[in-house]
Amino acid sequence: MRLAVTAGYWGAGPPAGAAEQFDAAERLGIDQVWTAEAYGSDAWTPLAWYGSRTSRVQLGTAVSQLSARPPATLAMTAMTMDHLTKGRVMLGIGTSNPQVVEGWYGQPYPRPLERTREYVDILRKVIARAEPVSYDGKHYQLPLAGGTGLGKPLRSILHPFRTVIPVYLGAEGPKNVALAAEIADGWLPMFFSPAMNDFYATALAEGFGRPGARHSAATFDVVGGPLGIVPDDDVERAADRLRPALALYIGGMGARGVNFHYEVFARMGYEGQARAIQDHYLAGDKKAAIAAVPTALVEDVALIGPWAKIADEIQRWQETVLTTFLASCDLRLLEKVAGLVR
């Protein structure tokens, strides 16, 4: 099993220790480092800034939001980074949710799977640089339909370092997971739980079985892991470290009825608890929302408690569809966690 770490996205400013995290990944033989974005810090700038300190580890975005950039722009960015890193870029993309897409980017959200398929098609055409790019989709047209009429198909001036850059999809629902298995080179799950492994294995198998699928399970990369790894002899105290993040995503990251993170936990068997968390959060009572996160829910998506408990439970994660273990932990624990996984 490969190993990965994530630098996430920022709040008030660059997080302390971000540079050291990239250094540690390089030093400890970690395979991948991933950055993220929401509606603040972007994924690509820190990947380039801190990634310039590395020479071996692969560098990816988990995820670069699809609506933030036209596909040609994202292809240009990935191609540029691929040259600078000598072929170490992994291109993770995702659709986000209607609140961010329409509220932040001012772009339409409907039919996200269809848009993703077209977007990836164009990305690959631009990166391959086999011919001038033209595309006549429902959501994307190159050249633009109905414009001045002066647009013409173009081919990138930049010759690619690699004509194929691996594409990963961030996905949570079964249809989106199946799409990842069909058209992408990897899947970036969020809030993965070993308890849901059969559910996800079925969704992946559906995608692998479609005509024209790029991969089988043997060659497809699934990058995921616990929400956090928090060693503490007091399990409740460890769970308290992660309850705020879970309450935010279950309760506040998406509108009622259109919160994909909420749906993950509902499918996991926590629909009643997720509804209570969301009710509190949307009513403005964040403390009650945090308190409503059950310890069992935290344990389903995280590794918490004494080291012996963590070492025992980590085996469950290694017996899943995951092929790359994403270690979300304090930097000081990374070497020990890497040892447990290996």
Rank of each mutant, 00 (worst) to 15 (best):
W317R: 04
G186Y: 03
N197D: 15
P108W: 03
R237H: 07
A184V: 07
E271H: 11
Y9T: 12
G224M: 04
R69Y: 15
G94N: 02
P226G: 00
G8A: 10
A245C: 02
A75H: 10
T323F: 10
K336W: 06
Q273L: 07
E319W: 08
T323S: 12
A72G: 04
R275G: 07
A48E: 06
E319F: 05
C329K: 07
L204N: 05
S193M: 14
V258G: 00
E182Q: 14
V133A: 07
W49C: 05
V120S: 12
E118P: 08
I93G: 05
T35L: 10
G149F: 09
L3S: 04
L188I: 09
W34T: 03
F192D: 14
F192R: 13
L227D: 03
V133L: 06
A327L: 14
G173I: 01
W10M: 02
Q32I: 12
S156P: 05
P71Y: 09
Y140E: 13
R210Q: 12
L84V: 06
A239P: 09
A288P: 05
T45A: 05
Y249R: 04
S193N: 15
P174K: 09
P160V: 12
V177Q: 03
E114W: 00
G284N: 11
Q278P: 08
A36L: 06
A78N: 08
D121E: 15
V321D: 06
V89K: 12
I250G: 02
R241V: 15
G254A: 06
W187H: 01
A43C: 14
A274L: 11
K287R: 12
H261R: 03
D300R: 10
H261M: 06
L84D: 11
G228S: 11
G92S: 07
T85S: 15
V120N: 12
Y135H: 15
L297I: 09
A128Y: 01
A62I: 01
A218G: 00
H280W: 03
D121T: 13
T6Y: 01
A327N: 00
A292S: 14
E102V: 04
P174I: 02
S64P: 03
A72C: 02
D234H: 09
S96E: 10
